[in-house]
Structure formats: structure tokens, C-alpha cells
């Protein structure tokens, strides 16, 4: 199981703050595509992905048990 955390606008779009995916292994790029096509989360395209609280790159591999966070452009400060 891979837990995907959603924040800000993405959270409102999805109507929930996390999605559980029954997947053993997937790349960052693939998970972004999946969230866009399957869950219709358009803002994923412009978002960064964090795996276990570290920013990840498109080619990085996510494994079951990992916590993924979709990070839309930040606006703190």
C-alpha cells in the first residue's frame, strides 16, 4: 500500500486528504500520471512529489509502505 497525502487545492479537489493505492512499486512520474488520469487531479502536473518527507525526482521509485505527498507550489511566508 502506498499512502498519498494531498494538501491545499488538491485536497479540496479530491474531497479528502489522502488516497491509498494498492501498488507495490511505481515511479514518481507514473504516480503523477495516475493521479491525473484516475483521480482527475489536474494540479498534480505543476506539483512536486515528496517521498517520505523528501523531494523526489520523476525517475525515483516509490515502494509499498512509502508515504507520498503531492506538493503544489508553496506559498508560505
Amino acid at each position: 500500500m502506498i499512502e498519498v497525502l494531498l494538501f491545499a487545492q488538491l485536497q479540496e479537489e479530491a474531497g479528502k486528504d489522502k488516497i491509498l493505492l494498492d501498488i507495490k512499486e511505481i515511479t514518481v512520474k507514473e504516480i503523477k500520471e495516475k493521479l491525473q488520469s484516475q483521480f482527475h487531479l489536474s494540479q498534480v502536473k505543476e506539483s512536486m512529489v515528496a517521498v517520505n518527507e523528501e523531494y523526489a525526482l520523476d525517475g525515483d521509485i516509490i515502494q509499498t509502505g512509502d508515504t507520498v505527498a503531492i506538493i503544489p507550489p508553496v506559498s508560505g511566508g
Binding site: 479540496e12 505543476e46 512536486m48 523531494y55 508553496v74 506559498s75
Partner: peptide
């Protein structure tokens, strides 16, 4: 509205 991308760039991983 949620505000994003005030700096008009995307954060770098490292």
C-alpha cells in the same frame, strides 16, 4: 483561493 507559486518557480529537490 489557495495561493501558489508566488515566486513563479518550482522548488528544487536539492
Amino acid at each position: 483561493a489557495w495561493i501558489g507559486d508566488q515566486k513563479e518557480n518550482v522548488p528544487y529537490p536539492t
